[in-house]
């Protein structure tokens, strides 16, 4: 008995794919916009850096760790009231974005902190010797020098978000994950499940190789 695709409604698959891409696009965008400054601040306040502040760093670090250690599926449920307050609903594509962002931003912030650590300390010192302000050092030295590391961090975050968007289907988040759960799991339509998994897999492959190519392009070492 070969695999038939009799249960697959391709228009629904297309719609689900569109919803997943929308969630992915917005959540990546906001996770980066929020996570980047947090990562920069974590780096700057860490030991031996320009704005070293142990108390602040420990506090921020603990908050980031807490958000990262809660499993995403639980975080999503915990955040339902927050989500409702921000976008008015906890359902559908719109309702999925806030928990995705809150789940991914701390993760991305840590990756940013790590890539900034890779920047040669001597280059920061050289900029200081030229009379650069801290802001100029962040903007003109740290971010450009860490560029390829940051692109890799965005790629990893986006790929992680692909699996998060699928999970958000559990609480009615829409997209491919939602299809997989409603048809594949609840109605035993294995073919629908397989099609969604294949699409997600292809999506991850495309994102990763695109990211890798960008990293290579911007790498100057």
């Amino acid at each position: 008995m070969g695999l038939t695709l009799e249960n697959v409604d391709w228009s629904e698959i297309a719609e689900g794919t569109g919803a997943t891409l929308t969630m992915l696009g917005f959540s990546t965008l906001f996770a980066v916009l929020i996570g980047l400054p947090i990562g920069v601040i974590l780096f700057l306040t860490s030991r031996g850096q320009l704005l070293e502040n142990r108390a602040f760093y420990s506090f921020a670090s603990i908050v980031v760790n807490i958000l990262r250690s809660v499993p995403f599926i639980i975080l999503m449920i915990l955040l339902i009231p927050v989500t409702k307050a921000i976008v008015g609903t906890s359902l559908g594509v719109l309702g999925a974005i806030p928990p995705l962002v809150i789940g991914a931003a701390p993760f991305f912030a840590r990756l940013v902190e790590t890539s900034l650590r890779e920047v040669d300390r001597g280059v920061i010192e050289a900029a200081q010797s030229m009379g650069a302000s801290n802001w100029q050092i962040v903007w003109n030295v740290l971010l450009p020098e860490a560029r390829s590391g940051l692109i890799a961090a965005i790629t990893i975050t986006t790929v992680t978000l692909v699996s998060y968007t699928a999970m958000s289907g559990v609480i009615g988040g829409g997209g491919l994950g939602d299809l997989a759960i409603r048809y594949g799991y609840q109605r035993f339509q294995t073919d629908v499940m397989i099609v969604t998994v294949v699409i997600l897999l292809v999506l991850v492959q495309i994102l990763q190789s695109f990211g890798d190519r960008l990293v290579l392009k911007f790498s100057r070492k």
């Binding site: 001597g122 280059v123 010192e125 030229m130 009379g131 450009p144 100057r220």
Partner: peptide
């Protein structure tokens, strides 16, 4: 501002690689 009056070069050059 004063540091601009004083240039510095380094053993490991410390150039912006990007």
């Amino acid at each position: 501002e004063q540091r601009r009056q004083v240039g510095m070069i380094f053993q490991h050059f410390n150039l912006l690689s990007s």
